[in-house]
Amino acid sequence: MEVRTIKVFTTVDNINLHTQVVDMSMTYGQQFGPTYLDGADVTKIKPHNSHEGKTFYVLPNDDTLRVEAFEYYHTTDPSFLGRYMSALNHTKKWKYPQVNGLTSIKWADNNCYLATALLTLQQIELKFNPPALQDAYYRARAGEAANFCALILAYCNKTVGELGDVRETMSYLFQHANLDSCKRVLNVVCKTCGQQQTTLKGVEAVMYMGTLSYEQFKKGVQIPCTCGKQATKYLVQQESPFVMMSAPPAQYELKHGTFTCASEYTGNYQCGHYKHITSKETLYCIDGALLTKSSEYKGPITDVFYKENSYTTTIK
């Protein structure tokens, strides 16, 4: 009895394709271990004539594949690729409408935090270190965002349907971005203890939790000093293409032309909904596939993004 075979390709990165001759009487799992086709788990399936010449994702289970996976995804987590594939199996079914010149995501599976993050990423200057993220990001900007969303979920250790947080998501993504040249110098002034300067680099240099107003941050924000008295913390120097200011959701007025974009969060910790506000020729609110415009805006804002380049204080 002759062994019926077909020729397929296996890959971990969709760049390096490895030619395989597979036995049609055995499952993919018996031949390769966990195997995925377009995100779908085909591990328990036997090869079919229609699979001839198709590319299958496999887990990096030998040295060659491990090197290829690390170079593309910059992670050695053995569960990463499987999590990416199972997320992709959902995100490829989502709709990605162009809204006001940006790629958004039609609401499904509690994905409003991903839509808000995706919209924000198209408006701030950011370059990702893992080629996987950078490639998928370019495709997302062009309207094909399924891979990018699935990668975000995998890097953030999230599953489809789980509630997510924009600030946490951005923080994970910033860790995989090139923020080497970003720098922030802060000064804390206390009447009792004097003053202390701190220099922050990388992710810490672009994120701040405690106030939404970048102007206020430049002037000074009140913080408790270690001595128990009130101290003032203010920005001395900022070198970065953008800054992200966050605070627990509270009524906040966004003035046209003073910011790049913002995240609105309605609801409580267990259950809520994100919308995205962007400042173009007027203010726009993007909620999944829905767009509304207004000249002014007041609502429960939790993150505001500002364009920056270089700032030095005039406070002496």
Rank of each mutant, 00 (worst) to 15 (best):
V3F: 12
V3H: 11
R4F: 11
T5V: 12
T5G: 08
V8H: 05
V8T: 08
V8C: 13
F9C: 10
T10N: 13
N14A: 07
I15N: 09
N16A: 08
N16D: 06
L17N: 13
V21H: 09
V21S: 12
S25D: 05
M26Y: 11
T27P: 12
T27A: 15
Y28T: 04
G29P: 05
Q30F: 06
Q31M: 15
F32V: 07
G33Q: 05
P34K: 11
P34S: 12
Y36W: 14
L37G: 09
L37H: 13
L37F: 12
D38E: 14
V42I: 13
T43H: 12
K44H: 12
I45N: 11
P47F: 05
H48P: 10
H48D: 15
H48R: 11
N49E: 15
S50K: 13
H51Y: 06
T55Y: 10
F56L: 10
F56T: 05
V58F: 07
N61K: 13
T64G: 14
A69S: 12
E71A: 08
E71P: 05
H74L: 13
T75C: 09
T76D: 14
F80S: 04
F80P: 04
R83E: 05
A87W: 04
A87I: 07
L88Y: 15
H90C: 14
T91E: 02
K93D: 11
W94F: 03
K95I: 13
K95Y: 15
T103H: 06
K106H: 15
W107E: 03
W107A: 06
N111W: 04
N111F: 00
C112T: 02
Y113H: 06
L114T: 03
T116S: 15
A117P: 01
L121I: 09
L121K: 03
Q123I: 04
K127Q: 11
K127W: 07
F128K: 03
P131Q: 07
Q134P: 03
Q134H: 12
D135N: 12
D135M: 12
Y137S: 08
R139Q: 14
A140C: 12
A142N: 13
A142E: 14
A142R: 11
E144P: 05
A145Q: 04
A146M: 07
F148C: 05
C149G: 00
A150E: 04
L153P: 01
L153S: 04
A154C: 08
A154K: 00
Y155S: 02
C156H: 04
N157P: 02
K158G: 03
V160W: 04
V160M: 03
G161L: 04
G161T: 05
L163R: 14
G164I: 02
V166Y: 05
R167S: 04
T169D: 02
M170R: 01
S171K: 09
S171E: 14
Y172S: 10
F174G: 02
F174D: 02
Q175C: 07
H176Y: 09
H176I: 06
A177E: 02
C182K: 02
L186I: 09
L186A: 07
V188E: 09
V188L: 11
C190R: 02
C190Y: 01
K191S: 14
C193M: 02
G194P: 08
Q195D: 12
Q196H: 10
T198Q: 12
T198G: 05
T199Y: 08
K201Q: 11
A205L: 01
V206G: 01
M209C: 10
T211C: 13
S213Y: 00
Y214L: 11
E215R: 06
K218H: 04
K219L: 12
G220V: 01
Q222I: 10
I223S: 12
C227V: 01
G228D: 01
T232M: 13
T232P: 01
Q237F: 13
V243E: 01
M244E: 01
M245I: 02
M245E: 00
S246C: 06
A247I: 02
A247L: 03
P248W: 09
P248S: 09
A250Q: 13
A250G: 10
Q251L: 15
Y252R: 04
Y252H: 10
Y252E: 04
K255V: 09
H256Y: 13
T258W: 05
T258P: 00
T258M: 14
T258D: 12
C261S: 01
C261K: 00
A262G: 02
S263Q: 00
N268W: 06
Y269A: 14
Y269P: 15
G272I: 00
Y274A: 01
Y274G: 00
Y274D: 00
K275S: 07
K275I: 06
I277Y: 04
K280S: 09
T282E: 10
L283T: 05
L283K: 00
Y284L: 10
I286M: 03
I286A: 01
D287P: 02
D287H: 01
G288E: 02
A289F: 05
L291G: 08
T292G: 06
S294E: 11
S295A: 14
E296S: 13
K298W: 13
G299P: 00
G299S: 03
I301V: 08
I301W: 00
D303H: 01
Y306E: 00
K307N: 08
E308R: 06
T312Y: 09
T314A: 14
T314M: 14
I315F: 08
K316I: 11
